[in-house]
Every structure is written in C-alpha cells, then in structure tokens.
Amino acid sequence: MNIFRFSGDMTHLISILVLLLKIYATKSCSGISLKTQELYALVFLTRYLNLFTEFFSVYNTVMKLVFIGSSLVIVWYMRMHRVVKLSYDKELDTFRHYFLVVASFVLALLVHEKFTFQEIFWAFSIYLEAIAILPQLVLLQRSGNVDNLTGQYVFFLGSYRAFYILNWIYRYFTENHFARLISCISGLVQTALYADFFYYYFISWKNNKKLQLPA
C-alpha cells in the first residue's frame, strides 16, 4: 500500500459518500444517472469475485464490501425508494449502456491476463469501469446546470483513478515484478474521459459560478 493508492481509495470513498449524502439529504436523485450506478455495481460485483477466496488485509476486504454494498444501495434507492425514484431523470438518462457492457465483455474475452473465469471477469470490470461514467457525463450535459453535490461526486470519482495512475507509476519503479498493463491503459482512458468535465469544473470554481456544461 502506498500513499497514492490510499489517497485514491479515500477519494473514491468520498465520492460515494457525497453521492449518498446528496440522495439522502435532498431525497432526490435528479442529475444522477441510474445507468452509471448500475454499471458501477456490476464493476464491483465482477471485480471482487476473489472477495471470499483471497484475503489480502482487513482494509482490502472491508473496502470491497463497502464499494459493493454502497453501489447496490444507491441502485436500490434510485429504483425502489418511493420518494427518490420520482426525481430520477428517466427521459434524460437514455444512454444505451448495454452496449458498454457487451463491448467490455467482448474486449475481456480478447484481452486478458489468463483465460480463466476470474481473470476474464476482472478484465471485464476494469474495461467497464473505464467507460461506466459515460451515461453520467451525457446526463450532465443534457440536464444543463449541475447541482454542487452532483458536480463534487463526479469530480471525486474522476480524481480517484488519477491517484491510481500515480500508484502504478510508483509501483513500477519500486517493485521489480509489477506489470499491470490492462489497469494502466484503462485507467488512463477512464481519467481522460473526465478531462473536459475537470476543465469546466475548474472554470466554474475559478469564476465562482455554477457549473455549466455546454450542451
């Protein structure tokens, strides 16, 4: 464990707490893409298949349970909660995210570390996470103005993988055997997808204006 990875995990945790705060405090999920939340639940469920077979540390296991649990709770809130589900932007959140799932699975069948059940699903979860934010970014552009908590949620979610990239660079120089090409390339793609959001987020912060994404 290094400071970059720990910072990345904490930033990821903060993004989830901000999202839970927004939904719980405002009893609204307007501006949040249910499809992105469903994709993230799938990402965690397929990535942590080794949850009960490989033990690394209490921290590792606890964080996996937190990520799986929170993503399922958020999906439940947005689908089932009698008040929250009324504020879901159903007509705006129309990204066909099934294509993202199929594309990631096909790519995982082609590019993986080993052709084993766990490795295929691990690679699938890495590829899917890289593009899971697309429905959310599209929804933000369509819904025009972004409320603060939603903007902060996307900002922290985008930042965490950037910390992981620093972690991979650090591990590359400190651990001779470290080789994790799949994560590095997917992580770069994932962070790059947030680039324009970060730009508009920084502009709105600098000018102290509401975050506006161009349609």
């Binding site: 990875r5 990821h12 690394f56 570390e113 490795e119 691990w122 994560s183």
Partner: peptide, 10 residues
C-alpha cells in the same frame, strides 16, 4: 516462473 498475479488493488 511466471509471477503469480494478485489483484491486491481495489
């Protein structure tokens, strides 16, 4: 020996 790959990251 191919190093055993461990997914120790989240």
């Amino acid at each position: 020996l191919r190093e055993e790959k461990v997914h120790d990251e989240l």
